[in-house]
Simulated scan of single mutants.
Amino acid sequence: MTDTAGLDLISTAVLLLKRDHRIVYANPAAENLFAQSRRQLVGARIGDVLRDADRLAPALELALTHRASYTEQELELHLASKAAGSNGASRLLVNCTASFLDSVAPDGPQLIVEFRHIDQQLKIAREAKIAEQNQANRELVRNLAHEIKNPLGGIRGAAQLLEGELNEPQLVEYTQVIIAEADRLQNLVNRLLTPHKLPRYVRTDIHVLLDRVLQLLKNEFGGTHMIEPDFDVSLPEVECDAEQITQVLLNIARNACQSTATVKAPHVTLRSRVARQVVLAKRRYRMALEVSVIDNGTGIPLDIRDRIFYPLFTTRTDGTGSGLGLSIAQTFVAQHYGAIEVDSEPGHTEFRVILPFDHPSEADK
C-alpha cells in the first residue's frame, strides 16, 4: 500500500483511486472539501462523491492509459451528497491533476488525484476588480452630483420667485411641480454624496438590527409576503456602525421583497450564521459574521450580476428605483472591511453580507 503519511499533511485535497475509480484513501483536506469523513469516502466511487464526475473521466483515463499526469483547469463540480462543502455550498471550482501511480500491490491504487480549490482565489480577484470599478463609478457620480447641486438650488429659487409674481392658480401649479422635482433631485444628490461618511464602530448584537429590519419589512410587505427569521442567537457581538449595517440589510431585504412581487407565494428569509475560514479585504479570518437575505424570486440574470452594485443601475422599469440601494450597501460593507456575495438562479437568490466580528485593528491585538 502507498505510504500516505505525507499526504495527510498536504493542504490540497488528495484522493487515491483504483482503476475502477473506487477511492482507497482521502486526506484530511479531501474530507473538508467534500464534506465527508474518510470512512464515508473510502470504498465509494468518485461518481458517488461528485455528481458530475464524468468531467474528470478524460483526465483519469488519459493518466491510466499513458501513465502520466493530466490537469483540468477551472473545473466546476458539484457534490453528489446533500452536505455542503467547505465553502458552504455544493458547488466546487477546482484545478484537478490526475497522475498515474505505479502501485506495488496488484490491487493497489492506480491514480492519485489532487484538487486545488480555486473558488476563493477567483472570488478575491473578482471582488478586487468590482471594488476598483465601483470606486471609479462613485467618484464619477460624486463629481456629477457636485455639478448638479448648485444649478438645482438656482432652479428652485427662481421657481419660488416666479411663483410670487403669478396670479393664476394654474400657472402656480406649474411652479410647484418645478419646486417638487428640484427637491426630489436634491434629495437624490444628497444620497449620492452621503454614503462616504466613515462608520462609528460599536459592539452590537446583530440580531437587534435584524429584528428592526424584520419589523420594517413586515410593516411594508407583510400583507403580501412571508418574511421570516432564521437566526443563530449564539453569535458573538460584531463591531460595526449599527445605522450603516441596518441600512445595508434593509436595502438588500427591501430589494428582495420587491423582486418577489410577481411570485405566487413570495418568501424572504433573513438568516444569521458563522462563516469560517474566510478572506475579507485580503485578510483571513477564522470566523466571521454571515447574514443572508434569501428570496424565491425570478433571480438575477448572470449578464448583469456584476453591475447590480453600480450607482444608478436598476432593473426596475416602473421608474421608482433610484439604483442607489445596493451601491450604498456595498460602500458601507466595504468600509467595514467586509464583502457582499450573491448567488442567484430562478426561484432562489441569496445575498450574503460577510463582516469580521472585530475591526481589523482590534483583531490584530
Rank of each mutant, 00 (worst) to 15 (best):
T4V: 15
T12S: 13
V14K: 04
V14E: 10
L16G: 05
K18I: 07
V24S: 05
A26S: 01
N27H: 03
A29L: 01
N32Y: 15
A44I: 03
A53S: 15
E61I: 04
L79W: 02
L79V: 02
K82N: 14
S90R: 15
L92T: 13
V94H: 03
T97M: 13
T97F: 11
V104W: 05
Q110V: 10
H117M: 03
I118P: 07
I118G: 06
I118Y: 10
D119H: 06
N134I: 06
Q135Y: 07
E139S: 08
R142G: 05
N143I: 12
L144F: 12
A145P: 06
I148T: 03
G154P: 00
G154A: 09
Q160R: 15
Q160A: 15
E168G: 00
Q176P: 08
Q176E: 11
I178P: 03
L185N: 09
N190M: 09
R191Q: 12
L192F: 01
T194M: 07
P195D: 09
Y201F: 09
H207N: 12
F231I: 01
Q247R: 11
I252H: 04
R254E: 11
R254Q: 10
A256Y: 04
C257S: 06
A261P: 01
A261R: 11
V263I: 10
K264L: 00
P266T: 07
Q277D: 14
L289Y: 08
V293S: 01
G297Q: 03
I300G: 02
D306I: 13
R307F: 10
T315F: 03
S327Q: 11
